[in-house]
Design a protein around this nucleic acid. Sequence first.
DNA 1: ATAATTTTTTAGGTTTGTCTAAAATTATTT
DNA 2: AAATAATTTTAGACAAACCTAAAAAATTAT
Lengths: 220, 220
Amino acid sequence: MLNFSTSEENYIKAIFHLQQDDGTVSTNELARELDTRPASVTDMMKKLKAKKLLHYEAYQGFRLTQEGKRVALMIIRRHRLWEYFLAEKLKFSWDEVHEVAEDLEHVSSKKLIDKLDEFLGFPRVDPHGDPIPDQEGRIESSRQVCLLELPLNKPAIVSHVSDQSTEILELLGHKNIGIGTKLEIKKKFDFDRSMEIKSGRLPVFTISEQLAQNIFVKIG
Amino acid sequence: MLNFSTSEENYIKAIFHLQQDDGTVSTNELARELDTRPASVTDMMKKLKAKKLLHYEAYQGFRLTQEGKRVALMIIRRHRLWEYFLAEKLKFSWDEVHEVAEDLEHVSSKKLIDKLDEFLGFPRVDPHGDPIPDQEGRIESSRQVCLLELPLNKPAIVSHVSDQSTEILELLGHKNIGIGTKLEIKKKFDFDRSMEIKSGRLPVFTISEQLAQNIFVKIG
DNA sequence: ATAATTTTTTAGGTTTGTCTAAAATTATTT
DNA sequence: AAATAATTTTAGACAAACCTAAAAAATTAT
């Protein structure tokens, strides 16, 4: 079990997130995601290829090998366990955990992470509703659907918010939507794809297409 | 409040430990402590001087400025809080916590550390008996004494072990000595400065001068 | 006080991870 | 299919943090 630098780990994680299933990732895409330059991406891709973490031929894009995916899942495991710890034990608020976990995830002691997992009671999802990979890298694929696709009047539970910017979190906070919120769609408007939502005993409120796009729910 | 690299932090911490009170630290000393080369030390000393963390003139040795000490105490605070967390919450054994804390201590979110402190109940000493600096960098100076200086038949409590090598920890484990162990010296031999120790209801046992040198105790 | 030794610094090189600018390749338009 | 545009890679630099080997300064011994 090799060890990787913080930088290498950030690249691996970003590729994992960009390549859903078997898609291929482009240099520009990855540069944008990591806020770096395409030339830097190419340099790193060569290094990760040499370490057999990537399938990569010049100009053809890249995707993780099995080994690369395994490494990515371990980084994600660390990240999400720390997020859970920060929210659950240290009482960090939902929107603060990500940044701190970005640092903690690079501390790579396996024993630390497995003992943390045990201490936390083997949680299955992090505070954003994302599943936490187990020691073997296995991940629970929960059948969740984008709020845009949720049928009218079907109760569902918010399980994930894909964008994690301060702006979206502020808006969600204002509308009292968070992971675990139960809601249903009362009306959809074709004109701007906005929708009216009913949640608990709050009065019905409206959300925009852009917002709905970033909210994912689990249906019973 | 500036941020420092892992490497800078390790140098700062090592200097703090080598300069008790107002002593000055030499290039070779520090290189030995950090397992690096004297030339590398000189490079870093220039950098830390430029950042006003060090008093340093070529060939004259160095010591931390007030600001340097403040930074050192914050790193030590992080290190010891994580050690406490690892031992107390994650059930790491005494001799495993140091290595992992070496990594965790470089995650520099102040909020993280203050919340961790609170979560742990504001512990005053880490699992090795070393005091934990508070948010302001204040440290409890407990009046402890080296076992070599403890008078005969005076009960004392083990509060600190200065060497933390696996070898010494193995020996201490074997003799059932740990932080918090109550003991007293029953006999001292001038020939080799070895001593006979009585602890709890165990039979009297002997320890060498080298070992006694590394054990510190608190006297009632 | 001078010579020998030790310590410390300088000079110059390496690796990792980044950058800019230019060249090569691929994709898109006309 | 050729020209234009976009993407990707190469070439060459730079900063951080380390190294070795040689020079400079300080210390110790004669």
